[in-house]
Amino acid sequence: MPQRREVTKLLCGTPFLARAARAAATDAVPASALLQPAQLAELLKADAPPLPLQVGFKTLYDQAHIPGSVYAGPGNADNGLANLKSQVESLPRDRALVIYCGCCPWVRCPNMGAAWDRLHALGFSNVKALMITTNFGEDWVNKGYPVARGE
């Protein structure tokens, strides 16, 4: 993986980029918790759908997001994790939640792993993660799944 080595070398130059590199561990999310876009689209049609939480970046959320989803990011920053906590702290710990981002290719996402860890630290036991392979535009919007726009 020469490109992975190149990424690591470049990201280790400054503290905030090194933090992004550490947070990029989407490996933290177990395979059993992953949802594919088609699976989530079906779940959202249910009478009691899970609550989608966008843990990525505001500029992306404002352009397009999953209808009914709440902005709760970015997971790579302390203020983003505080935002995530404030969005969920009043919810029952067994509430079905789905975190998603799609800012970058899945293996490079700086938000999902950290958001996953924080929700588990807060005691949430029914959390899934939407696996977006390339980005939200390619894997959700362009596939024709429902989209809301604006803040």
């Binding site: 190149e6 990201l11 905030f16 980029l17 992004a20 970046f57 970058c104 700086p110």
Partner: peptide, 11 residues
């Protein structure tokens, strides 16, 4: 964006 590792590689 600064938070996007593959973007930093491109610079």
């Amino acid at each position: 964006a600064s938070w996007c590792p593959p973007c930093i590689v491109e610079i």
